[in-house]
Design a protein around this nucleic acid. Structure first.
Lengths: 338, 338
DNA sequence: AGCCCCAATTGAATCGTCTAAATCACCGAC
DNA sequence: GTCGGTGATTTAGACGATTCAATTGGGGCT
């Protein structure tokens, strides 16, 4: 009635279940005409392998969990793309989970993934020091941090966010800006904190530059626009002349806010975003942005995980760190006279 | 060594596996102090239920596959939100799969989901007549079409796309537009075809209106902007004065294209989008859009699926159809004198 | 004392697949 | 004609949780 099992396939083909299993896993050792009979039987019955049984038997699932902060952010889908590409080569499936920057949702997803005994988890955690993560590892589920640097016993793949912040800051300072806004949040998130630390450092080194900080709960277009309108409403004398946003969605929103308020970009307000997502380039005013190699991040994270799974015991955790690049476009391409 | 099983929990608590299972599934029938002992044992060993084993025994998984055309489109994530909310109430997990409007990827996801014996699949298919879908159902995996109307033996949840097209078309015609562009694609996709049919119908009814059609491969911001720049380059005399875009991402891109070309919206070009995603409202020029109840769609689809799974045999497939609403905002709010 | 009943617990069978060891059939060589 | 060998196939447990029929141990009642 339900889906046929290997047993029924065997029966119809007049062989034992072992042979069918061999056909599926080691077709080479099955005699050609037997192979044909089994093949026909599978076809006729519409047999589909039962992954749950395989998994139970193997003790390990063939899926990898990928938990990201925001699936609507192209940065994360590009990242997922990279991870999936490599997973595909390893005959492995990726289960995409959206935590929406909410620790409760994140926890729920982790629970589910652990119950499913996933091969491993790639995660951009809300809080990378969460003890839950190491607990997972202790109980046998490998975890690789993505877009976060691990300090303790974990693999991680990240981009030097401090450097990213410095690149953006230097660029704005060199363009003559003396009042700069940093916008991002929550500040407790490591990436945001690092980017902020980067620009803060160069601002202090430069001297005579005023850096103000604006925190948001979620880094989306809507929030960016709100902050943009808020800043635009300030009198020109005290308003920042440049803004560095901790991701491109914020920056795109911010840009919209400027348009609504009638401020020109970059003349009245220079903008630098982060991630360099595809439509940063396609924005009304093409957006300067700190580029991260999203796809490579995802691919490398999956690589580390596969490595960890395969070499098991003698695995040494690694922290891979990539360098960001500043891509200057029209939104910040304006020399401000002192 | 690996994760402890129910057996080890039982041993440590000095009870049988049956009792541990009872504790997990029907705690009420376990004596209070036994319950405590089992609880302690679980805690001490860090026991985590093995979903694969439950699933194998139950013959049915507790996860539902949700295959969407584009996870970066907020319409689909809102939809996913609705589906997940209801899934949560049914103690069920949603596996989000992104087909990226690519039939090959879609097929791969369907294969994986079937091997996992998911409880059911919610899908916005590339092609709703794909025989693969009915094959799935025949082999025992319930399928609910989302944002598509099923003709044959399937449940579906959709929005009246022809009506949506009519609403947009009427609005533009009544505002005095006589040269209108419809932009979307691929035209083979049912929703796109229906929206186009809707506006085509009202255009024909009105008479004296010129409707031109532009097809795109993928409905994203980048494509919208490209078409926008293309139309903006036409001489004002022959250029359409209004555009109806088959989704909001296209419309947002189109709007950017106008800004780049220096055309004013809505004076030089009126714009109506589709889906009414959150940041249609937040765009530089707030976007008129045909609203679909995304979250409700997702929730209802999951409802139909749960219903189908539970009532099994005596289930009658249903096609739920919602009505769209036109939300008029600044991007089309301009009376054009004839 | 004998009986019954109820609550609590146990034990065994089951789900579908995989694997290692065992069996079988067949062939050629001595 | 027997032995060894090879290649193909079968058999018999696992894997971990669930379920249901069977068992145990008290109480309460007559």
């Amino acid at each position: 009635m339900g889906t046929p099992s290997i047993k029924e396939v065997a029966q119809r083909a007049g062989v034992s279940v072992g042979t069918v299993s061999n056909f599926l896993n080691r077709p080479g050792i099955v005699a050609p005409e037997t192979r044909q009979r089994v093949q026909d039987s599978i076809q006729a019955l519409g047999f589909v392998r039962n992954e749950a049984a395989r998994h139970l038997r193997a003790g390990r699932s063939r899926t990898v969990g990928l938990v990201v902060l925001d699936v609507t952010n192209p940065f994360f889908t590009d990242l997922a793309e990279g991870a999936e590409a490599l997973a595909y080569e390893h005959d492995t499936v990726v289960m995409l989970c959206n935590s929406k920057t909410d620790p409760v949702r994140e926890g729920h997803h982790l629970d589910q993934l652990e119950q499913q005994r996933v091969m491993g988890i790639l995660i951009t955690p809300f809080d990378s020091t969460d003890p839950r993560l190491t607990a997972l590892v202790d109980r046998g589920t490998p975890v690789v941090l993505v877009d976060r640097t691990a300090d303790r016993g974990l693999c991680s793949v990240s981009v030097d966010d401090q450097l990213g912040g410095r690149l953006a800051g230097n660029h704005l300072i060199e363009s003559g800006h003396r009042r700069i806004a940093f916008i991002g949040g929550p500040f407790t998130m490591q990436q945001v904190a690092d980017r902020r630390a980067g620009i803060t450092a160069v601002v202090e080194e430069a001297g005579g530059v005023d850096l103000q900080h604006h925190e948001v709960d979620v880094m989306g277009v809507v929030e960016g626009r709100a902050i943009g309108e808020q800043l635009a409403a300030l009198p020109a004398r005290s308003r920042p002349t440049a803004a560095f946003l901790a991701n491109d969605l914020l920056a795109l929103g911010f840009l919209q806010g400027m348009a609504v308020a009638g401020l020109r970009v970059p003349r009245d307000m220079a903008i630098v975003g982060y991630d360099d997502i595809d439509f940063a380039r396609a924005a009304a005013v093409p957006l300067s942005s700190v580029r991260q190699p999203a796809e490579l991040l995802g691919r490398t994270a999956m690589e580390l995980l596969q490595e960890e799974v395969e070499s098991a015991e003698r695995h040494r955790h690694r922290q891979v760190i990539f360098q960001p690049d500043l891509i200057v476009r029209e939104s910040s391409d304006f020399q401000r006279r002192r």
